[in-house]
């Protein structure tokens, strides 16, 4: 789905060593591979199968996703920030497409 649009919420600034909460959402049908169309044929599975979050190149959080995750997959998790930098988010589609988003945070 070309119009998968990620939305990420990261605080703009934080104190050093603070644990912040990050919320992410991406629009995606997450076709489970269980549903059938009008003719009784199974609609092929097409989901986001992996989500990762990195901060300044280091892995913060990763999730292996199975079809039981709802459409428009939402993930909320935490990150500990010690320095200013950039969060990089990526979602991997079954068809190989990788959707990405970035958010900067200022740590003082």
């Amino acid at each position: 789905m070309a119009d998968s649009k990620p939305r990420v919420k990261v605080p703009k600034s934080a104190k050093a060593g603070e644990v912040i909460t990050i919320k992410t959402l991406i629009s995606h049908t997450m076709e489970s591979g269980q549903r059938k169309d009008k003719d009784g044929k199974i609609i092929p599975r097409k989901i986001i199968n992996k989500f990762t979050c990195e901060f300044n190149g280091k892995k913060v959080f990763e999730c292996d996703v199975d079809p039981a995750i709802s459409a428009n997959p939402f993930f909320e998790f935490t990150a500990k920030v010690n320095e200013s930098g950039t969060f990089k988010f990526s979602w991997v589609d079954d068809d190989g497409t990788i959707y990405t988003d970035e958010k900067k945070i200022e740590v003082n």
Partner: peptide, 26 residues
């Protein structure tokens, strides 16, 4: 569920806490 697997979260020291929220199908 038709397939019992839902999701697997991987945490690191950078996560700060081992907590996560998502939405699932039942």
């Amino acid at each position: 569920n038709p397939n019992p697997a839902v999701a697997t979260f991987h945490f690191t020291e950078m996560s700060g806490t081992a907590a996560a929220t998502t939405r699932m199908r039942l």
